[in-house]
C-alpha cells in the first residue's frame, strides 16, 4: 500500500466534472484506490463517492492505493490533481 498527500489546487474543487475525470482514471487501474479527506474515506472509482467529499480548493486529500499497479495509479492520479484536472490554463 502506498499513500500520497495531494492538495486540491483547481479552483472549483472536486466538482462533478473533475470527479468524473478522477473516477474514470481510477477505474483504469486494478489496485484498490481510496481518497481520504478528514474523517472520510471514499473509493476513488466511484464518482458519487468522490462528490460526497465536497472537497473544495485548498483541501488536502490523501491518495491511497493497494495493488499491483499502485505506484502507477498514484502517479497518474496525482498528476491529474497537479494539472488541475486539465481544466485551467
Amino acid at each position: 500500500m502506498i499513500e500520497k498527500k495531494q492538495q486540491i489546487i483547481n479552483k472549483l474543487g472536486l466538482h462533478a466534472r473533475a470527479a468524473a475525470k478522477l473516477s474514470h482514471l481510477a477505474n483504469m487501474f486494478s489496485s484498490d484506490i481510496y481518497l481520504i479527506y478528514d474523517e472520510d474515506k471514499v473509493n476513488a472509482k466511484s464518482l458519487l463517492g468522490i462528490l460526497t467529499l465536497a472537497a473544495s480548493v485548498g483541501s488536502e486529500i490523501t491518495l491511497q492505493a493497494t495493488g499491483e499497479d499502485e505506484k502507477e495509479a498514484i502517479e497518474a492520479i496525482g498528476g491529474l490533481f497537479d494539472r488541475k484536472f486539465d481544466e485551467e490554463s
Partner: peptide, 11 residues
C-alpha cells in the same frame, strides 16, 4: 451530471 452518474460503474 446525471449522464455522468449513469455512466458511473461504481454506483
Amino acid at each position: 451530471t446525471q449522464v455522468m452518474l449513469l455512466g458511473d460503474s461504481h454506483l
